[in-house]
């Protein structure tokens, strides 16, 4: 693991106790990377959990305090926004599903410790999408994209309504009817995911644990640039660790990925969380997913590229990073 072992942020995330021994130079590097990666609040949460805050330099304590407030206020705002969405959607008789950050907050997952969310994602059945838009607009939300071209793009090619925002609360809401763009090669059966969703905060639903994880995974390895996505990968590590306490999670993981056609993304997630965060994944799960990996050439490329771009300054930038991030960008599209 030549790329990742020298990365200070990753080392500290793997073992937060290292924070008590960092030099000023190392703190500079670590906090800069953490801030860009949206993980400063996470480090603060780790330090609080381990009760090592008072052993840290005063300026680090200040930064952590600032980030802790930021994260707490963001969580509070998202919970309030969930409440407002509930109210706006009164009369809806089908499942309203919280996705990603909103779901993690509703379920109080470990990965929300120190996390900052700036928007809220929800999913409704495709035949309820116009109903949802009407309801949101009637309740005061406004479209963020006004021009015809962008509106047309969202309505014809995206898998969501054009994003809306409430002018008094500034939290953008994305309303989806499936989890990947219409143009994506992978088309998981969203009906199955909706059917298996479970009741959560305030009458909302969230995907089952396995589907929640798979959604995060497919979002990172199918839909996004992998560049600067350390936070996403860490969420996957957290979910494997948290959900994995229950044996049935591991039993249903790979079969569900097969059922939804998301095996390649899951392969990458298991491989790279283990590689980068040393995630504790049962051997039989690694064996089970092995047949769904790519060929040796692709795997070699991914092993070179992903660690080079997943954090922000890994691999010291330059040509190496440029090739990797553009190569991965093309792969996802």
């Amino acid at each position: 693991m030549p790329h990742t072992d020298s990365n200070i942020l990753i080392n500290v995330l793997r073992n937060p106790n290292l924070m008590t021994g960092l030099s000023t130079y190392e703190w500079n590097e670590c906090l800069r990377e953490a801030k860009i990666a949206g993980l400063a609040g996470r480090l603060a949460a780790d330090a609080i959990y381990l009760d090592i805050i008072e052993q840290l330099p005063l300026k680090v304590q200040n930064t952590f305090q600032s980030n802790t407030y930021k994260s707490q206020s963001s969580t509070r705002k998202i919970k309030w926004e969930i409440n407002r969405v509930r109210r706006a959607m009164q009369g809806n008789d089908e499942k309203l599903i919280l996705l990603k950050g909103g779901a993690y907050i509703a379920e109080e997952l470990k990965c929300t410790q120190g996390r900052v969310s700036v928007d809220l994602d929800v999913l409704v059945a495709k035949n309820r999408i116009d109903f949802a838009e009407e309801k949101f607009l009637a309740a005061g939300w406004e479209h963020q994209v006004e021009n015809d071209y962008d509106q047309k793009y969202y309505r014809e090619y995206a898998h969501e309504l054009p994003p809306m925002v409430h002018p008094e609360r500034y939290i953008s809401i994305d309303v989806y009817y499936t989890i990947l763009p219409m143009t994506s090669r992978v088309k998981p059966d969203i009906q199955k995911m909706i059917k298996d969703s479970v009741i959560s905060l305030d009458g909302f639903y969230v995907f089952s644990k396995v589907d929640m994880l798979l959604h995060n995974v497919v979002h990172l390895f199918q839909d996004e640039e992998i560049r600067s996505s350390l936070r996403n990968l860490l969420e996957q590590h957290d979910m494997f660790t948290e959900f994995g306490q229950n044996e049935t999670f591991w039993q249903s993981l790979v079969p569900r990925a097969v059922e939804l056609g998301l095996t390649r993304s899951l392969y990458y997630s298991l491989h790279f969380t283990k590689l980068i965060f040393q995630t504790d994944i049962p051997e039989n799960v690694m064996t089970e997913i092995a047949p769904y990996g790519p060929g040796a050439l692709t795997m070699g490329l991914m092993n070179w590229m992903v660690p080079a771009v997943i954090s922000t300054t890994l691999g010291a930038g330059g040509l190496n990073r440029w090739i990797c991030q553009n190569g991965l960008y093309m792969r996802s599209h």
């Binding site: 200040n62 930064t63 305090q65 600032s66 980030n67 407030y69 930021k70």
Partner: peptide
């Protein structure tokens, strides 16, 4: 100002 406002919430 912006930096102080957004990053000095302690």
């Amino acid at each position: 100002n912006w930096h102080v406002a957004s990053d000095c919430k302690q």
